[in-house]
Amino acid sequence: MLNAIIVDDEPLARQELRDQLEQAGNFSIQAEFSNAIDCLKEIRKLNADVLFVDIHMPKITGLEMVNMLDEQERPHIVFVTAYDEYAIQAFEDNAFDYLLKPIEPERLQKTLTRLNQAVSRKTNQNIPAQPLTLIPCYQQNKVRLVQLSDVNYAFSDLTGVHIGTQAGEYHTQLTLSVLEEKTELVRCHRQHLVHPQAISEIELLDNGSANLLTKSGKSLPVSRRYLKELKALFGI
C-alpha cells in the first residue's frame, strides 16, 4: 500500500486521478491539495510515498514546488500535465516520471509498477537542483511569497525554519538544507544561514568563533567550523 498525495488546481482533475488510482488498487490517498503552497505546508507531516503534481498551478508551479522539497524527505514525484511541450521536454531530459491528461489506464499502470519497485528499493529520484526565486512563507494565517533577493538570513529553532528580511521574520516550510543548496545563502552556524551581501560586520571572538551583524542590525552567531569558509568567501 502506497501513500499518495495529489496536488492539482482543477477539482475535476483531482477527482479523475483519485478514481483511477483507487481503481488501480494498492493506493491510499492521504491528501489532496489545490495549490503548491497548501501542499508545502502539510507535506512534512504526511510522510507520503508518492506525490502526483500538476505543473500549472497558481503562484508556485509544480516544478518549483518539487524543487523546494528537501531531498532527504522527498517522496517520489510523478508529474501530471495536460499540454505542455516544454515541460514534457524537461521531464524526458531528466528522466522524471510523468503522466499526460487524460491519463490512460495502461500508462498509469506502467508508472505504478515503476513506483512499487522504486519504493521497495528505496532508490531516490535524481532531480537536478534549480535555484529558487520565491520562498513561500507564513505569517499568522497569511501566505506570503518572499523574493529571494529580499532575504537577509535564515535560521531554525524549535518552532521551525524562519527567514529574515528587512521587513521582518517569517516562518517557512522549507528546510535550511534546501535553502543552502538552492539559494545564495551560506551557512555560518549549524542553525543559521546568511546572505553574504547582507553582512555589515564580523566580530572575531577569542574562542575562534565570531559574531556577525547584518545590515538590518540582526546579530548572528558564527561557529568555528563555518568561520573559515565565510572568511574564504570574502578573501580574508
Partner: peptide
C-alpha cells in the same frame, strides 16, 4: 485551439463518469 481543446476534453472525460 490546442490548450483549450485539451482542457475541455479532459474536463468532459472527468465529468462523464460522475
Amino acid at each position: 485551439n490546442p490548450h483549450f481543446l485539451f482542457n475541455a476534453l479532459n474536463t468532459i472525460s472527468a465529468v462523464i463518469k460522475q
